[in-house]
């Protein structure tokens, strides 16, 4: 069990440039303000009036905070977690003091209550929201641990491992060099599978992994499998969560190529469209047994959760059957940068 516990997601500040995060902050701050006035005022009429007054301070402060945090996001991400939290709190408090002074200047002091009160409220709201984001990451990290475990089990699934080893054995006498390459591919694949799944990986590395996996499958399936790679538009520096693409390709082989009696084509298309990365994997739809389809759904659900953990609301995963083809498409933001060691 130790290996599972090690897998808990490290605490990290949210990505303040992510639309999902921004939306959560806006909704959260307003919900807190609403809760506070309802709690403080006797009737609905007073509460609404008080909320309107509070908005003159809350809205400028929120917008200013979001702009500053979004601008400072890469710098904040490099700080240790608690230092980052202190920086966020400091920034919000400073902005609160500034906003308080400005609003007092423009509207006159009577419109506002004391500076101390503003600072306490802003600080408390920020702390609550930071706590919420921390809990959210923790709530998702079991999915990650499970994903790794599941991926391991799925890949150490006898079906793939033993059939691949069997294919390598058949090569050793006829074509020793190809057998060597195949074992190297298998080693690389397994190294990746038992690696830490917490940080981002580079798209170029993930594509290399896809190619190694496809080479192994090609070995045993031969002419029955044809993989069409459409990767010209794939930016190699894009960052993405690990083990998102490989399970999709494996599903395509398992459900689209192996059960087919004739030759079958799998298309892997990855491209950048504006500030988005689109990855599509497509195979022949052969049908299959309910248990297999359930397995496929579970794999997709797992990938969806991991995308959510890394990209919040900015990632999408869709699957559909169209014209006898089964397609899975992932959309995620085009993100570059250093790979942070977890």
């Amino acid at each position: 069990m130790a290996s599972i516990r090690q897998n808990v997601q490290p605490d990290a500040l949210p990505d303040f440039r992510n639309l999902g995060v921004i939306a959560r902050i806006l909704v959260g701050a307003h919900a807190l303000a609403l809760g506070a006035v309802i709690f403080a005022e006797a009737g609905p009429a007073q509460a609404i009036e008080r909320l309107a007054r509070a908005a003159t301070l809350l809205e400028p402060l929120l917008i200013a905070s979001l702009v500053v945090l979004a601008a400072a996001s890469p710098w904040l991400a490099r700080l240790a977690y608690w230092l980052g939290c202190a920086a966020v709190l400091g920034a919000v408090l400073a902005l609160a003091a500034l906003a308080h002074a400005l609003v007092a200047q423009l509207l006159g002091a009577p419109a506002l209550e004391g500076l101390a009160r503003t600072l306490v409220l802003a600080g408390a709201a920020s702390a609550l929201l930071l706590g919420y984001f921390r809990l959210r990451v923790r709530a998702y990290s079991p999915a990650l641990a499970e994903a790794r475990l599941q991926a391991l089990q799925a890949r150490i699934r006898p079906h793939f491992l033993f059939n691949s080893l069997n294919a390598v054995l058949s090569l050793i006498r006829r074509d020793p060099q190809r057998a060597e390459r195949a074992l190297e591919d298998l080693a690389d694949l397994f190294r990746q599978l038992i690696a830490d799944g917490r940080g981002f990986v580079r798209l170029a590395d993930e594509i290399a992994l896809l190619e190694r996996y496809a080479a192994l499958e090609q070995l045993r399936l031969g002419e029955r499998m044809r993989v069409v790679w459409e990767l010209d538009g794939a930016p190699s520096d894009a960052l993405l969560p690990p083990m998102v693409l490989q399970p999709l390709l494996e599903n395509a082989v398992y459900h689209g190529v192996e059960p087919a009696t004739g030759a079958s084509e799998v298309v892997v298309r990855i491209e950048r469209r504006g500030d988005r990365i689109l990855a599509r994997i497509e195979n022949a739809y052969v049908g299959g047994e309910p248990a297999q389809r359930a397995g496929n759904r579970m794999a997709l659900e797992n990938i969806r959760e991991r995308l959510k953990l890394f990209f919040d609301a900015e990632a999408t995963l869709e699957s559909r059957i169209e014209g006898g083809r089964y397609r899975v498409e992932i959309g995620m933001p085009y993100k570059t940068g250093e790979i942070r060691a977890a």
């Binding site: 059939n163 069997n166 294919a167 058949s170 006829r174 070995l219 045993r220 192996e258």
Partner: peptide, 13 residues
């Protein structure tokens, strides 16, 4: 066997 290398392997054995 649907995999050619697997048939090959059995023949070798």
């Amino acid at each position: 066997d649907d995999e050619a290398p697997a048939r090959q392997r059995l023949k070798e054995l």
